[in-house]
Amino acid sequence: MLLTMASVSKPAFAAAGGLHYPRCSKIVRQKWRIRASSAAPGVDLKTLESAISKKDSNAVKEALDQLNEIGWAKRWSSQPYVSCRMTSLRELTTLGMKNAENLAIPSVRNDAAFLFTVVGTTGFLGVLAGQLPGDWGFFVPYLIGSISLVVLAVGSISPGLLQAAIGSFSSFFPDYQERITRHEAAHFLVAYLLGLPILGYSLDIGKENVNLIDERLEKLIYSGQLDAKELYRLAVVAMAGLAAEGLKYDKVVGQSADLFTLQRFINRSKPQLSKEQQQNLTRWAVLFAGSLLKNNKVIHEALMAAMSKKATVVECIEAIEKAS
């Protein structure tokens, strides 16, 4: 999940305390009731669509607050208050997390599969090429064998390029696309429930993200002034993708970016947390996010279905609100 907040460029998130905005006037509310919409009789989503297209997080929140007032966006910011507490691995297991003790260990499945495939394929082709007549039987195996060295060199000089290649290769895993959709939908849903505006998302290989922007939080992150409440909310959204995978699969493979993002938030908070506090925050955030996803399983699946069809952000929000 990408949280386009401050300088963060990977999957991301937000903290307790609801976000409050002035109530719209009676006249404005009446206009919202009168307008026609496919969402529901008397509900107009054009203001929300316009705010999202302009990437205006404040306008998106105001639009959703207004929709909530008239009784449509009932799930928007329905879980605004979060508070960290001591959490054990046993609680994660009880919730249904598979291999809870290994959730925070970065997965090397995709990397290992890619490298083994490259080395195995080039080795096999090298042996076959060795049967060629004359000098071809010497030079061709040599050239094929050097492919593995080139791959390692690219990984050292340009890790991003190698990661893109690994990402493309990983698409051959039968569960790859479903994992991505489940992961990003979890970030989307949890952010929505906690009151963070979503401005976009992507499920494309190498560009998987949910785009969240909050100007107030951006300033706090840039200045390194995230307080505990904001950090808690951001932590929950950050761990939502990891939690979604942990509830479904024996091994989580998309947690590296989530953990990296959470660490950046922790580094931008005050007061600084000890290593023990950081570990507990991670466990608690996974537990809280996992609980939200488990309690809203039908909604999560409806959102996954919408995102897999490349629905717009507004259509995804409609899927959340219409799911029963």
Score class of each variant (00 low, 15 high):
D175C: 04
F114K: 04
F265G: 15
Q66V: 10
Y201N: 03
T117N: 05
N211M: 14
P22A: 11
A319F: 03
G130E: 08
T117C: 10
A240S: 08
L193C: 02
Y201Q: 03
S269D: 01
P106K: 02
S38D: 12
F138K: 14
G71N: 04
Q131A: 15
G134P: 06
I266K: 02
A238H: 08
K61A: 09
L67S: 03
G42N: 02
R109W: 04
T87W: 07
L132Y: 09
L161F: 08
C84Q: 11
F172G: 08
F188L: 10
K270Y: 10
E321H: 00
S291M: 01
F116W: 09
L247I: 05
L19Q: 11
T121C: 08
L95Q: 05
V210T: 09
I147K: 02
F169A: 07
K294T: 03
A285R: 04
M1N: 13
R23N: 09
V28A: 09
L67T: 00
L287I: 08
V151Y: 02
S7L: 15
S170Y: 10
M97P: 00
G167I: 09
S83Y: 11
F169R: 02
K61I: 12
Q225R: 09
I166R: 04
R179D: 01
T282V: 06
D56T: 09
I27P: 01
A63G: 03
A51W: 04
W72N: 00
R216P: 07
G254F: 03
D258M: 05
Q79F: 05
K207I: 13
E208D: 07
L162W: 11
S168C: 10
L152P: 00
P141V: 07
G145P: 05
G120A: 12
S256Q: 13
L103D: 03
W284A: 02
K55Y: 07
I34E: 13
F139V: 14
G155E: 05
V28L: 11
P22Y: 04
E49V: 03
F138T: 15
E208R: 09
R90T: 12
T122L: 10
L199I: 07
P141S: 07
A63E: 01
W32Y: 14
S7E: 13
A39K: 00
